[in-house]
Design a protein around this nucleic acid. Structure first.
Lengths: 371, 371
DNA sequence: GCCACTTAAGCAACGCTGTTGCCATAGTGC
DNA sequence: GCACTATGGCAACAGCGTTGCTTAAGTGGC
């Protein structure tokens, strides 16, 4: 088990194992997975897996889906996740745009929409727009009978308190400082709400597309430069939800002054290169930060995103990969760390926000740090 | 529970809760802790705590130690860890020196010794010296009746594979590349052996002196510059035990060439400043890296160590603290991140190595990453 | 000095967990 | 058609924390 500070009883044991199985079903996707594979992966006995999957089937979360070819005996029964057993709303509040998605348990987007937003408007107006967007996707799309919506995940720019769901100051929008977004939206929608930084949401969503507990970094280059970290399968937030402050790391001692008051911040250098059209240099600077990160945390995979990257993804991937590979080569690493770009424009953030709600179901809630 | 990839059964549940209680007893130290406090901290019922502590007492790991003052009813019985219920050997193999310690469950050093070592000598010779040192501390000291030694933790410089206990190349000592140190020493001593990087060991040992699952960084400045990270109470190693590569992060784009082949590595800049006697500049450079780290991971506490730091601890602490505080102030953090220096010269590494053996007892084994 | 009250800790019964031993089911191959 | 193999469920079981109640050990009022 883990190093969480709380004791475990039988219900906790049960939900831990159920989450584990559910996560394996999720990762298996449409292909499904058999009971014996589940037993091997979890270390539980086949009988225990049978009991657990029976419960999941009774709850409607899992279903049998055909059989594998026999290997000399009774063929294995394939189980898969029932995607529409639950949904989550993902809401991305950006500075000028609102994106909302409805995703099912498998992570597939059922409904999605985008609208302009003035994040600088009074809180009530923004909240009303957000509430309307949530209501719209809950009722939208075809076959909208009785969808079980588990909650709303909200991704916002800037720093905040994840535990309390309270925003801190967002650069350029001081009126949000101290605003209890989680509780306010929970009252309006009648749903549980989780709030997190946009980069954390994106990182979670992108990390969940792959299996396992690998360590993962998402680097977002848009109007600013930030990072989301997923360590051991869960978002690493730190005690104050302040982790991921990637843009203001110093990569040039006594370098040019940054808007934050520091000197030689990677964000300032990167954005300056972008501003003068030197994409290759921006990618090299970004790659330097990525290489620092990979070396420091032994990250397994780096994903780039954000509008600026989306404008010229190949140059950024090539530039970042070059720096990361070169550094890794010096360290004697065997396999290079993959560097890829996130697809889908800004939607990964909204999808990741929805995953903030779903992740606990799959045992991927953060540990002692940011739960 | 956690996001480990393995299922949990009743014995796992039991040992999880036992470890949790044991960790609270360890942190409480000589002051002890009552059953009801344990119940509050763990979230378990008082009755469950009674059962768990009864088992621990039966195994000799815990004992009753007096009573608290009454608050109107039966006074609480204080429980404490029995330190000599188990010991661990910590071995620090450095480039020119061998340090060995015997610590008890509470982390107190019972026996300790240091001897010169030629790490460049043939492996057999080094191993023989290490084995002798282990044997000496097992039998050394007073009242050496029947100490239960749980294992040997070994800290070595340079990169390695923690899982397999195999060394990679150590700068300047290529003959160790691929050497199966763990198994070799396990055979010679007849004890379980755990191998880790010196910085990781030091970080673990220093982090365990405080309670809780805070995120902690140890920065070691000696012949090189490295870091050990403790996230959520356990060492963060990454999938390849490569995390903590702090010294070769770039803090000056196109800066001076470093021995690693890169440019502007923090290690090169820091050591260059040390070489020309500019301790304040070295501290500033180190502080820049520390601030990068604190911002990226939302680290709670930074500890400095290593011979170079030990030569002028106050200047380093002051310099690093200045940079970290200044950066934190810009980010709007409330409380400054403490920056302190590790006491005890090189012994923290050996003590931490011993904690590599003890940590699992207290539920602080690494998670999916490096277990 | 006695009694009422409060708090701590243990005993016994209980519900629920995963495990074990055994059996039914459903295929393959001779 | 039979022997064999692998899958998966049924039933009994040991062990976990929980619940309800009892006993132990103090304080404070009268």
């Amino acid at each position: 088990m883990n190093r969480s500070n709380s004791g475990a009883n039988l219900p906790a044991l049960r939900s831990h194992n159920a989450a584990l199985v559910l996560d394996l079903l999720r990762v298996a996707g449409g292909a499904g997975i058999s009971r014996l594979e589940l037993a091997e992966r979890t270390g539980l006995t086949p009988q225990a897996v049978s009991k657990i999957t029976a419960r999941l089937r009774a709850e409607g979360l899992a279903a049998e889906a055909g059989h594998r070819a026999s290997t000399g005996g009774k063929p294995r029964t394939v189980l898969r996740l029932v995607p529409d057993a639950g949904y989550a709303v993902g809401l991305h509040l950006d500075r000028d745009e609102l994106t909302v998605v409805l995703v099912d348990l498998s992570g597939a987007v059922a409904v999605s929409s985008t609208a302009p937003l003035d994040f600088g408007a009074p809180a009530d107006e923004v909240l009303a727009a957000a509430t309307d967007a949530v209501t719209a996707v809950r009722d939208g799309g075809a076959g909208t009978g009785d969808r079980r919506v588990l909650g709303v995940g909200v991704a916002v720019p800037g720093s905040l308190d994840h535990r309390g769901g309270v925003l801190h100051r967002v650069t350029g929008f001081p009126q949000w400082d101290g605003y209890p977004l989680r509780d306010a939206l929970a009252v309006r929608t009648g749903l549980p709400v989780v709030v997190d930084k946009d980069t954390n949401a994106a990182a979670l969503g992108l990390a969940l597309r792959a299996a396992g507990g690998g360590d993962f970094a998402y680097l977002h280059l848009g109007t600013g430069l930030g990072a989301g970290l997923v360590l051991g399968g869960a978002v690493h937030r730190g005690a104050r939800t302040a982790a991921g402050e990637f843009g203001h790391q110093t990569v040039e001692l006594d370098g040019p002054v940054c808007g934050c008051g520091g000197r030689g911040c990677i964000e300032a250098l990167c954005l300056a290169a972008v501003a003068r059209g030197d994409v290759a240099e921006a990618a090299r600077v970004l790659g330097t930060g990525a290489a620092n990160l990979v070396g420091l945390l032994d990250i397994d995979r780096v994903v780039l995103g954000g509008r600026t990257v989306a404008a010229d993804p190949e140059t950024y991937v090539r530039g970042v990969r070059a720096v990361v590979d070169e550094r890794a080569g010096r360290g004697g690493a065997d396999a290079p760390v993959p560097v890829v770009v996130a697809g889908g424009g800004d939607r990964p953030v909204a999808e990741g926000a929805a995953q903030l709600v779903l992740a606990p179901l799959f045992g991927r809630a953060a540990g002692a740090d940011g739960a």
